[in-house]
Amino acid sequence: MVTMQDVARRAGVSKSTVSRVLNGKNIVRPEVTQAVFKAIEETGYRPNLLARQLATQRTHFIGFVMTNALYNGPYFSSLVYHAAAFSEQHGHQLVLADGKHSAEDERNAINFLLDMKCAGIVVYPKYLSDRELTEIIQATPTPITVLNRSLEPYSVTTDHYHSAVMMMEHILQQGHRRIAFIRGSNGSVTGEIRYQAYCDQLAQHGLTPDPQLVVQGDWTPESGYHAAQQLIARKTDFSAVLSGNDDMALGAMKALMELGYTIPQDISIAGFDNIKMGEFVTPSLTSVSVPLEQMIQKGILLALGEKESANALSLAGELKIRDSIAAR
């Protein structure tokens, strides 16, 4: 394997001079710099960039922690895509660390990225509590940003409650009063917030939430499919379904249509997250957009210390009215 010493011999300089050239030091004469780069080309030397960056206590890495339980699905694939794209845009390489299946696994993933001397770290937590995250953040000088948690001043999130209120208002304005709800996974903060808004809006309109109209899902299309079957099997009247996310809404649509219902004429349906597929099903799915792209961009900017640019980004949700909801 070609070493830095081999390059130095070929260029007729010292090893420390080669190191200064590779580190961009301006104290090296131009002709020497040219000789070093020529020697690198001739020898085929590949510098160990990671070792060199670790030795100088800085890298151009952005760390990203997310448990593998969240990898599957368009929402999270879009999240990783934007994280990689914005890291590249800001001259950094995204390093993904798997948070696996527990709070300890998430902690280990963060520690791995800290050992990698990442310039900043973005965490989409599933298991770590707000208290644990705060302790980790305050114990290290490396900037760590938390996505989708209300953990000021370290978090980046959107107002899920307001977004759910907007959606419920729209459904209620269409004349629906018997509105079913498909909940997300147990323990999901986002899912609980959306469900609370559903209950609050019913109460505000003088309606009592009916437990028979609430079904548990787990964010997947399969769970939405089975949730819709459960709702029909209960033989409880309803004219609309609000799903905790679009994936479950699409699964519910399939189940309802297989059971002979026409959407939205018989049953209206809506979701959250505004995934791309929702635009291309028939009928197209009414949803609330989550500013995912802006959230991850803001998270990376904060992790890089660019607070002014980060704070200029809007993280408001937006109602996307399509064909899956009809007036009652």
Rank of each mutant, 00 (worst) to 15 (best):
D210Y: 04
A228N: 08
G224I: 00
S243K: 06
I232C: 13
G251P: 05
G244A: 14
A164V: 07
D237Q: 15
Y198L: 09
M167V: 13
D218C: 03
I193M: 11
A240L: 05
Q216K: 13
C199V: 15
Q230W: 00
L207N: 07
V189H: 13
D200H: 09
C199P: 01
D247Y: 01
A228I: 02
M248L: 10
V189Q: 14
Q229E: 15
I171Y: 03
Q201M: 14
V165S: 08
F238M: 08
K235D: 15
T236S: 13
H170L: 07
R178M: 10
W219M: 07
W219P: 00
L172I: 13
A249H: 03
S243N: 09
I179A: 10
Q204S: 15
T220C: 10
S243C: 15
M167K: 09
Q230D: 13
L242Y: 07
Q212P: 01
G244Q: 03
P209I: 00
T220M: 11
D210C: 10
D247R: 04
R183W: 02
A233M: 05
S223L: 01
H160Y: 08
A233Q: 12
T220P: 03
G251Q: 01
I193L: 12
M167N: 14
A228W: 01
Y225W: 03
M248K: 06
Y161L: 13
F238E: 12
K235F: 05
N245K: 06
V214M: 07
Y198Q: 08
D247W: 00
D237C: 13
D218Q: 04
R194W: 03
A252P: 08
Q230A: 09
T236E: 10
E192P: 00
F238I: 06
N186E: 15
D246H: 08
M166G: 09
A203V: 07
C199I: 12
A249P: 08
V165N: 07
T220D: 06
G175A: 12
M253E: 02
E169I: 01
H170P: 00
H205R: 14
G187D: 06
A240Q: 04
R183T: 11
M168C: 14
A228S: 12
G187N: 06
T190Y: 04
F238Q: 12
L202Y: 04
M166A: 10
M248I: 00
V189K: 15
L231T: 03
T220S: 15
V241T: 06
T190E: 13
V215T: 14
I182P: 10
M166C: 12
Y225E: 03
